[in-house]
Simulated scan of single mutants.
Amino acid sequence: MLLFFTLGLLVHFVFFASIFDIYFTSPLVHGMTPQFTPLPPPARRLVLFVADGLRADSLYELDENGNSRAPFIRSIIMHEGSWGISHTRVPTESRPGHVAMIAGFYEDVSAVAKGWKENPVEFDSLFNESKYTWSWGSPDILPMFAKGASGDHVYTYSYDAEREDFGADDATKLDTWVFDKVKDFFHAARNNQSLFSKVNEEKVVFFLHLLGLDTNGHAHRPSSREYKDNIKIVDDRVKEIVSMFQHFYGNDGKTAFIFTSDHGMTDWGSHGAGHPSETLTPLVTWGAGIKYPQKVSAQQFEDEFLKEWRLESWKRQDVNQADIAPLMASLIGVPFPLNSVVGNKILLSILSILKIAQ
């Protein structure tokens, strides 16, 4: 009897240990050959806006008066670019969401379990492949893309961690800090020849991480005035930054813009699971290399969102979140991040957005 019990315990221990061996060991491999899109890069620079914790419906839906909370983004959808849904995966958290969109793969459990702020495994990213990347935002997100970068070409500007107060009355200051610092940066670039030369290189990326919506969503819920007002502030400041880029670069038509989110949020202000409110995030792209809006009479999607958002006449382009990394790489002509899960379906989703595929 004792032998049987001991044998049974040993078998259970082996099965238990195998779970950790399989799921808590990184599947990433190294030494692969870099892959490029065969298409010529249409953009010299890319601007990535990530509104942390922004639900797709919160951005796209109209308010009780029939007005958009984000009129600038709405005008982009109708007049300048492409729009759709970026489908995230569980866990719907900030770190795996950013890894998916910037590195192009879905982070394994070993990485998530070992912490959010450090790199338990080395991985390639769009930022590492760029000539230069400048990023502004949360100290929880930016360092993990700079730590593993080869060479000194990924620059981060973060506020103090104490600013990330999930009980704060005014979390929009996290976003206004980012926008103000970007403006200060370009003002300084005009008077600094070395910096001016760098920002005028090709294959450069500017990353604005906006944590205010996530913080307001946790503190006040997505239906709150604070969350909805934050959307309006972000929209207004994005418009301002786009205008600044156009002025700085003399409207050269070589800037591509991407506006998206790492994950959504439930009605009660949480995220991490697989509810559509957490996994459906917005994706709006415009500028160099992006197709103009396409008017359609019918669309392939069976959900009711198009009518609710009154966007049924503008073609919707849905992608998986990891598709965004090769899309961005294609726009500025750098290799896909080495661990990017690039396949035929992803390439087709990229081609459906790029103007140069027409």
Rank of each mutant, 00 (worst) to 15 (best):
G151I: 01
D124W: 05
S135D: 07
S125T: 12
D152S: 06
P143K: 08
D160M: 11
T156H: 03
E129C: 08
K147W: 02
S150K: 11
P120V: 13
I141T: 10
L142E: 14
L142F: 11
V154S: 02
A146M: 06
G151Y: 02
A149I: 00
A146F: 03
S135Q: 14
V121T: 13
W134Q: 02
S130T: 07
S130H: 01
K147P: 00
V154E: 03
A161F: 14
I141P: 12
H153D: 03
W136T: 05
P143V: 08
D140K: 15
F123S: 05
D160K: 14
D160R: 14
G151P: 04
E122C: 06
Y159L: 10
D160H: 15
G148C: 08
S158A: 11
E129D: 12
S138D: 15
Y159T: 10
S150F: 02
T156G: 04
W134H: 07
Y132P: 02
S125L: 11
V154F: 00
N128G: 03
A146I: 01
L126Q: 09
S150V: 00
S135T: 12
K147F: 07
L142T: 11
T156L: 01
D140P: 05
N128V: 04
F123G: 03
A149Y: 02
G151R: 05
S125R: 08
I141H: 12
F145D: 06
W134Y: 14
L126V: 09
D160Y: 13
H153W: 02
A161I: 15
S130I: 03
E129T: 07
D152P: 00
H153A: 01
P143E: 08
G137K: 12
T133A: 13
D140W: 15
H153S: 04
S138W: 13
F123C: 05
K147N: 09
D160P: 11
G148I: 03
S138K: 13
D152F: 02
A149C: 09
F123I: 04
P139R: 14
K131C: 01
E129N: 13
W136M: 11
L142M: 13
Y159F: 15
D124E: 04
T156Q: 09
Y132N: 06
G151Q: 04
V154H: 01
P120C: 08
S138N: 14
G137F: 07
A161W: 12
D160L: 13
A149S: 08
V121C: 05
K131M: 03
F127P: 04
V121G: 01
L126E: 10
T133K: 05
A149G: 01
M144G: 06
E129S: 10
A149W: 00
W134V: 02
P120Y: 09
L142H: 12
